[in-house]
Amino acid sequence: MFAAPETHPHDLPTFHSQISMPYTLTPGRAAGTFLAEMPNRRIVGSRFPDGTVIAPAQDFSPVDGEEPEALVQAPETGVLTAFTRVNGDVIGLVRLDGCANEFPHRILADLDVLSVGQRVAAQWSDGDEGTSITAIKGFALAPDAPEGKVIDLADPAEPLGVINYSMSLDFDHAYGPYYGRMFDEIREHGRVMGVRVSNGDDALLPPREVDDVTHKRTGTWKACGNTGTIRGCSIINMEILGQARKPPYVYAEIVLDGASTRMIHVIDIDDLESAKEKIRPGTRVRAIWTDGERQGRVSDIDRFEVIEE
């Protein structure tokens, strides 16, 4: 059984990393129409060739994948078929009148008073929820609500082609004994240390317990040089989301002296043409450390510079 030493980097319990990105998602015809109809306060469903109706509308039957023959307008009333409470919010399954399926939504009532089979009715949001399904605030108990009917969908709105969406994930990554020591050394001593490969003197960067190639245990720690050699490099001349530096600059994979594997970093340049000549595989470079306080990250090295011969 693996038993890691209970070591932690000094003052660096975990490494926070965030992945956050904008998206433009396409809902497809059925959901696109449903969402487009939210501001009109109409609930759109799908009718299948055998006459069954499901709501909210789907392009494919969740039961067997069949395609619907028409979009319809579903009523705002139905029955509660299941319920729970998560983080204080009551969520339930609702079957709208005239529909064969159920779907999840907020239930606007205390959990204690709910029972399966209760009549419910949609409540529309007072605020502007745009084309989100949350334009329906939820379903409230409506014991006396008359049975609603599915009707034809008159003059349906054009389906939304794209909706804006974002996803953000936060991570607190463990350093472990190897990365922990490496980043401590970077922060406290301004040096890059790796561990020797299992069968030689060169250091693996980043360090780890087991050699990537031989799958044998790695050796002792070793400080790598402040200088190194470019293995591969390209001149970045385009902007992409999430980029830390403004182009143009050089993306370089550098083998530090005494190391066997690459470190990924950047080299500042004046212009494309001179960089093509000056910076190439084999070019010698030197790490330029930050003037500010070191944080224990790769970016404590601000950049690399070409060593003029």
Binding site: A4, P5, G176, E209
Partner: peptide
């Protein structure tokens, strides 16, 4: 496993 990384 806060003392170990995935690779560990």
């Amino acid at each position: 496993w806060d003392s170990a990384q995935h690779i560990d």
